[in-house]
Every structure is written in C-alpha cells, then in structure tokens.
Amino acid sequence: MNIIGLKHVTLKRGGRTLVTGFSNVIVKGRVTVIMGPNGTGKSSLLLALAGMMPATGKIILRGRPLNEHSRAELARAIAWQGDLPPTEFGLTVAQRLQLAGGEHHTDFSKSVSLMELGELLGRALGDLSSGERQRVELAALMLRDCPVWLLDEPTAHLDLRHQVICLNMLRRQSEHGRAVVVVLHDIQQAVSIADDVMLFDGRGNIAAGDVAVMLTRERLQAAFGVSLHDASLLLDYHVQENGHESTQ
C-alpha cells in the first residue's frame, strides 16, 4: 500500500538543481534503497520526504500534500535519522532515548538490548565513539511509532557486527509493515535488504524500480561513471557469496 507519493518533484539546493520532475511511490512493507554519487541530492530527497526541505511538485503523505500536515502530524508519521546530534551540552544516552519516545515505551528495553547500549545508558553522548552514537540513533528510531522510516547512511560508522544488526533490524521493520527508505553507498548492503531502488545519475534524473532491475552492471556503470571491472575488489565478495547476477 502506497504511503507517500511523489509527483514531478524538483529539488534545488544553493541555486543548483538536484532532482528534476521525479515521480514515484513509497510503499509500506518494503525497503527502498537510495543510491547514487556524492552530492547528487540523496540526503536532500530524504529531507524533502520528511518535510524539512522545500520541494516543487507534490509530495503526498496519506492522501494529503506534505505541506498541509502540521509538524506534529509529520513527526507521528515519519521518523528521520540523519546526522549525529551535537554533544556540547552533555545529554546522556538515556536522555537521548527519552526524547525519542520515552523510557516507558514498550520497545525501550528491546531497542537498548538490540543495539547493545545497556552499559552506555548513563554515559554522555560526547563520551561515545561515532559508531556507538550511531547505535544510539538507531535505538532512538526504534522508539518512534512511525509508519515511515527515513535513514541517511545508517551503517556509516558501524562495525561489521552492528552493520549486520542494523540491516537485519531494517529488514524486520519492513516485514512488520513499515515503509523503510534508506540511503546506502555499499552495493552489497543494498542488495541484501532492498526491495526497491532509487538510483541517482548525477544529472538530476532518478531511475526507480525493483532491485533486480535497478542494480545491473549497465545502470551502476552509468550512474557512478566507473567500470565494474575496476570496482571488482568491492563487488567480487558479494558475487561469490550471493551469486547475485545483477552485479556481476
């Protein structure tokens, strides 16, 4: 079931057009992975979907234009995870989680235990590593009862173990009916969780469709401007393990 619709969406930042006339739908119960070169507007698209960046065209949430929803309504429908929050004022892990949904949330213990934060609850965010802070943000996201999750490179600071935990968690959340939209740079990670892919080409166009159709050699080469033969160091492991033909 569609929860967000995009109609002829155009995004600009600093006088530069990032996305031109993009139309698509975000569907509940599916993981949509956004991929593309740096600076092409992936994070901006996430912000626009969260109602935090102006866009021309129409973004429709549950049948109503996004800009007709109040900020509180948007916060109930859409959870966004992007940059790590600042640490200057000494907020602790427990307080950060409390702001997301409260320690009385039924999933509080579950999210803390899944992200392995039990020992860190009393620590200040500023005393944690980037990876630990990323895990705090993921646990905070789990406390948001929103049908749409938007995540900007959630595995960026994580070690291998927590990358796996994170991707499995996202997969499970979509199976429970959430629409999960996630920006990723790692093709193997994308293949492992994506149902749908939006592929930016760096010229304002986004191709979108099923993962098997989108992550092909030709499309990836065209989008990133690199021969996949040159990128074999990055891709062979996946090819051997998964035998996924689309990236060979």
């Binding site: 969260a50 509180a72 948007l74 997301a100």
Partner: peptide
C-alpha cells in the same frame, strides 16, 4: 539534538 532532529521530533 540540533534543529533537524528537533524538527523530526515534531
């Protein structure tokens, strides 16, 4: 948490 996080929380 910063302006974006605050905004995302409503």
């Amino acid at each position: 948490l910063g302006e974006r996080h605050a905004s995302a929380l409503g």
